[in-house]
């Protein structure tokens, strides 16, 4: 019995990305057959060559926009999708490849490629939401399979998905993790990072790496000041801390910029 929109057609799209988030759907082993029964996979090249024409009820979009062609293609995807859900750090924040946004893409192009003129690329790697309206974002590098299944479940039942936007700290406390920052002195991005991973790294005595990007009201400046003053994390390390998978998410971008050497800062 479905309470929501019947058996929806689903398309999975890839932009600039590593395919890891699409694989998260395929690795939903226990639920995969049930999912395939309840939704119609209409376009998912990672899984099948069989393609059904759009429009689609749900589009899952992986990857960031890095080329003029992709900037055009995402508009087409949007126009044939009723609901568009971005999945993963690339789609929601530009991904690790958004490190280029802090450098000069022309220099990279001329140094890395034998025939740079063949490479048609944009200066920045940008999130999907900077190009088209997005209905829901699933964060993470990669996304959590359980969150994706939860969203599909919620759509089928016509209810709100459980995808909290609070900090990772809440997940640590719910599962009874000891705070690695306070009790171990480990620098941790948990207080400014959105939940969703069930506090995986702190559960293994690691600080949070910020895979899920900024939480709903991230005070990264306060956290960075504390890490600098109390944990003696120096400026280059603060830049590295905030400049990873979600480097170009605004709250993290501002913070890493703040700790760059003066002459490099733009």
């Amino acid at each position: 019995m479905t309470l929501g929109i019947g058996r929806p057609t689903v398309a999975v799209w890839k932009f600039a990305s590593c395919d890891g988030c699409q694989l998260s759907l395929l690795s939903a082993e226990d639920e995969l057959l049930a999912i395939a029964g309840e939704i119609e996979i209409a376009y998912f090249l990672e899984a099948t060559r069989e393609v059904k024409e759009g429009p689609y009820d749900i589009s899952l979009v992986e990857g960031s926009i890095t080329t003029p062609a992709d900037a055009e293609r995402i508009r087409e995807v949007r126009s044939i999708s009723t609901t568009l859900i971005t999945i993963g750090a690339c789609a929601t924040a530009g991904g690790i490849q958004a490190l280029r946004n802090f450098g000069d893409v022309e220099t990279f192009r001329s140094l890395v490629y034998a025939r740079p003129e063949y490479v048609d690329t944009l200066a920045d790697s940008t999130a999907i939401a900077e190009h088209v309206p997005v209905d829901l974002e699933l964060r993470g590098c990669p996304i959590e399979t359980s969150q994706l299944v939860e969203v599909i479940n919620a759509i089928l039942a016509g209810r709100k998905p459980v995808t909290p936007t609070h900090s990772v700290c809440v997940e640590c406390k719910l599962r009874g993790n000891l705070c690695v920052a306070v009790a171990h002195g480990t620098p941790c991005l948990g207080p400014v990072t959105q939940a969703g991973c069930n506090a995986r790294c702190p559960a293994f005595d690691r600080g949070c790496y910020g895979c899920f990007g900024p939480a709903e009201s991230p005070n990264s400046a306060s956290l960075a000041t504390w890490l600098e003053e109390e944990f003696e994390v120096d400026h280059p390390d603060l830049v590295r801390l905030f400049r990873s998978f979600n480097a170009d998410a605004p709250a993290f971008r501002r913070e890493s910029r703040r700790h760059e050497p003066e002459e490099v800062a733009t």
Binding site: M1, T2, L3, E31, A34, I35, G37, E38, V149, E150, I152, N153, A154, L156, A157, R159, V162, H166, S167, C169, V170, K173, L174, C179, G190, P191, V192, A215, S217, P218, N219, S222, L223
Partner: peptide
């Protein structure tokens, strides 16, 4: 300016009692 709004204070507080409810469903809708 300093507060992270991370909720740690309320979660370690032995008297704070605020909760929310989360609803789950299965794929079959049963």
């Amino acid at each position: 300016e300093r507060c992270l709004a991370c909720a740690n204070c309320t979660l370690v507080c032995p008297t704070c009692f605020c909760t929310t409810v989360e609803d789950r469903t299965d794929l079959a809708g049963t």
